[in-house]
């Protein structure tokens, strides 16, 4: 038996805002009978563009019904911009948590809301982006990557719990593992740089980045840059060539050199030009 919280049980047994809004401003439909759960979400806005009324219909298990009900309570009275910020984690949190295997129910809520908002804004239904990885449940690589990134998922089982991918014939497990590795690989690399850099490593990495990324770009415009010193998080450089005389050098330094170094080395770096 599932361990459902009191809030989940309450929203399942007494779901709020069940029904249809005939003249809805936005409608979002996700899921299908075959998938085992589906949700249709309707909302109506007031004169101040706030969500005045919201209704849902859900086919699915207790946590799917509870997640839908919770979502309607959470977004009532919000502007669409505010509502759009609601994540699947927020829905799960509102319910006092969901069993891991049921997280996909909260993801379904968020997806329905996104669709309803796009529907209101008159955006064409987003075409399925990316490539279908899980044939059984029709889940794309982009959806899997997003779930991995947003929820820090580390295993195939996690991915199945959140977006269902891999829960059927299991033939896509290798592909899912690859997506997890790639997504996490990228993220862990960045984190490592933040956490583990010693001073020497930091200086080396700054030098490498200047050589590999920044100098070639500046040279195209006839300029160049030289590393003078690194003092804590302050990177002191000297601009050369056309850059030295350029009136936009300040912008080059801050918008390009500094942002590049922050992205590739450490986010707390500050770039200064040496005063000659």
């Amino acid at each position: 038996m599932w361990e459902y919280t009191k809030t989940v049980k309450d929203h399942f047994l007494n779901p709020r805002n069940v029904g249809i809004i005939e003249d809805a401003d936005g409608v979002g439909e996700v899921g299908s009978l075959a998938c085992g759960d589906a949700l249709t979400l309707y909302f109506k806005l007031d004169d101040h563009k706030r969500i005045k009324d919201v209704k849902f219909q859900t086919f699915g298990c207790a946590s799917a019904i509870a997640s839908s009900s919770a979502l309607t309570e959470m977004i009532k009275g919000l502007t669409l911009e505010e509502a759009a910020k609601v994540t699947n984690e927020d829905i799960a949190e509102f319910l006092g948590g969901l069993p891991k295997q049921k997280m996909h129910c909260s993801v379904m809520g968020r997806d329905a809301l996104e669709k309803a908002i796009s529907n209101y804004r008159g955006e064409a239904e987003k075409k399925v982006e990316g490539e279908i990885v899980c044939e059984c449940f029709g889940v794309t690589d982009i959806e899997i990557e997003r779930a991995v990134r947003e929820n820090n998922l580390t295993s195939i089982e996690d991915v199945t719990n959140y977006v269902k991918a891999g829960g059927g014939c299991e033939s896509c497990h290798d592909k899912i593992q690859k997506i997890i590795d790639e997504t996490l690989g990228r993220e862990t690399k960045v984190k490592k740089k933040v956490i583990r850099l010693t001073n020497i490593q930091k200086i080396k990495l700054i030098e490498e980045t200047l050589e590999r990324e920044i100098k070639p770009a500046l040279k195209k415009d006839g300029g160049n840059i030289e590393l003078v010193d690194v003092d804590g998080n302050n990177v002191i450089v000297k601009l050369q060539g056309t850059c030295a005389a350029c009136s936009a050098s300040e912008i080059t330094l801050k918008n390009y050199v500094e942002s590049k170094l922050r992205e590739l080395v450490a986010p707390e770096l500050l770039v200064e030009e040496v005063q000659s």
Binding site: G36, C61, S63, K102, F137, T160, G167
Partner: peptide
């Protein structure tokens, strides 16, 4: 049903 077993398929 799928949901009762913790798997996703019936």
């Amino acid at each position: 049903s799928a949901c009762t077993s913790g798997s996703l398929e019936p």
